[in-house]
Design a protein around this nucleic acid. Structure first.
Lengths: 336, 336
DNA sequence: CTGAAAGCGCTTACAG
DNA sequence: CTGAAAGCGCTTACAG
């Protein structure tokens, strides 16, 4: 790379000091309009670009926040990150993104790296593998601003932004009931994973409130991917259960169930109303499931960034507070 | 945030200078093993973390590369970014990601910002809106290392990594022919967009080489989304064309066509072999289209990062060279 | 093997 | 309104 233009280069041309140039460029009231204009002209002409590293070092404000997510090649997280990016940039902050790939080790490594980069705060969605919370406790002790999103750790003292999965599941299943379903099955996720547990609880609550006691045969526990949905649905049939409503813990599970139907009895599609917990952006892309619980990921990203920036700027405190993001029930839009 | 530990703090504890500490921490051969060990011990104990800003400023190497993509909430780009991230990190580089949102203005702004952050090189996928290439010419003049990926600008002197869309389309259509299709239609993209043009050309070439002259009625030009596919397929039927093979310019267009079929005549699905140009990660998620052209996005990201890092480290030169990534023809995997 | 000096590019007091 | 001094935390080159 060719040598870069610095404050000094501009100063030399105008027979002033770099201090004057620095101030002029930042519109400091000290400097006369006349000087400001001249400085800016030369800066433009020379293609001056402030060295942010130097500026950060000297002002001890990097205006940078670190973001750690388990993965980015996933609609949900991609949208969250887009939301974070947008809100951060709008407020003068840059983001540095790191992927933990669901590994506790990588997650820790990245957080340390971000700290070295002098980020002013951290936005993290904890990896599934993470058990040891020492680093987070240390961060709290060091008063590093941090906000968890989607996957959080409670009890350490950090704020978090998460989806209200239970409520969304409950509302969604209630909508199926409203649409005449009387036999609603649930392909549930692993119960040791939070979203798996919460979504099942929501399902049960909706049934209870409707007066129908949940029958445990109607629930098949499994994973969160196509395979789980495929085998899950087959398990239902093996139990000689043919529901008129089906709530799946994720969209991929819904697809898996759909595949199983296609294979065994495609006509089931017409008899079973399916509701899937979905990531933003997929709704309407395929004709089945007909119903979705839409998770507003962009909004979550925005909210998380907002909380963090407020914390960085001293407007709020970290305090184990949870901010819930509301999901919406959606019908597939088939009409163009 | 609490005050951070610096080299000086460690030095004070051991009655040495910060130079010694700096060297010890970096395993400089100057320092005795004994001293190194003591220094590292104290550093650990105090929770020392090097200030990368200071290090970069002083060594004038930031070990950071800037990445600009049109959007991240899109499988294809998300996978590319993941590939970049992985390869960069493996080689000791950090990445700073920026989203242009298909805006020329934002793209330029982000590039300037990255330059200010002292990135050592740039990886960019040009926004659709970008017409003015002045900034890129200036970057070239300034000898800023830069590699384009997926969407490039030729003639400025930068290297790029792109998919060989024409070849992939050609191979894919040839596979349909091999499978007995004799009437292959193409739902094509806009012809002023590169991928639209290249994929259509590949389609034509495959037919030509097979001895069957492309019939222009079999091609419907449109956009790249579900809607384009939906109306595109209806247009085909209006022309009284019922193909036995259908090549769609994107996966969403394929879905749109599928929706149109479902609406008009679901049985068409059994008669029409569909091939879609797809983004990594969707294959197999739905039963139709049966055939995909898989774009190895991770690989593209990796390749782009590799080229850039080699350029940064002086191993190769920017020279308007194009590196092609091979796509693969895939059948939907339905078996678990 | 250890350290004193200089400097990376910038900003923040403070003096004039 | 302008500038001389000091310093952010670190590394490089040179002396001892």
């Amino acid at each position: 790379m060719r040598k870069k233009v610095t404050l000094k280069d501009i100063a030399l041309r105008l027979n002033v000091t770099k201090v004057t140039v620095s101030k002029a460029l930042r519109n400091h009231p000290d400097i006369s309009d006349n000087t400001k204009q001249k400085v800016k002209e030369i800066a433009d002409q020379l293609g001056y670009r402030p060295n942010l590293l130097a500026r950060s070092l000297t002002s001890s404000r990097s205006k940078t926040i670190g973001v750690v997510v388990p993965k980015i090649a996933h609609n949900f997280f991609a949208h969250i990150v887009a939301g974070i990016q947008k809100h951060a940039n709008a407020n003068g902050y840059e983001i540095v993104l790191k992927l933990s790939e669901e590994s506790e080790k990588l997650e820790n490594k990245h957080i340390e790296g971000l700290l070295s980069m002098q980020v002013e705060g951290l936005l993290v969605s904890v990896s599934m593998e993470t058990r040891n919370t020492d680093l987070y406790k240390w961060l709290r002790m060091m008063q590093v601003p941090l906000v968890f999103f989607d996957r959080n750790i409670m009890g350490i003292g950090f704020n978090s932004v998460i989806m209200d999965d239970r409520k969304a599941a409950k509302n969604g299943v209630a909508e199926l009931l409203k649409r005449g379903c009387v036999n609603i099955a649930h392909l549930a996720g692993y119960q040791h994973v939070n979203i798996g547990k919460e979504r099942l609880l929501g399902y049960k609550e909706a049934l209870s409130e409707n007066g129908s006691k949940p029958v445990m045969d109607m629930v098949v526990e499994g994973g969160f991917d196509e395979e789980a949905g495929y085998y899950g649905f087959k398990t239902l049939l093996k139990r000689r259960i043919v529901p008129d409503g089906l709530f799946t813990v994720t969209y991929p599970v819904g697809l898996g169930a759909y595949m199983a139907m296609q294979e065994i009895a495609p006509e089931l599609m017409d008899d079973i109303k399916m509701l899937a917990f979905g990531d933003s952006g997929i709704r309407g892309a395929v004709p089945y499931p007909q119903y979705y619980i839409d998770q507003p990921a962009l909004e979550m990203g925005k909210k998380a960034a907002e909380l963090l920036i407020n914390e960085i700027e001293g407007k709020i405190m970290a305090c184990d507070h949870i901010e819930y993001i509301e999901s919406k029930f959606l019908e597939t839009g088939w009409d163009f």
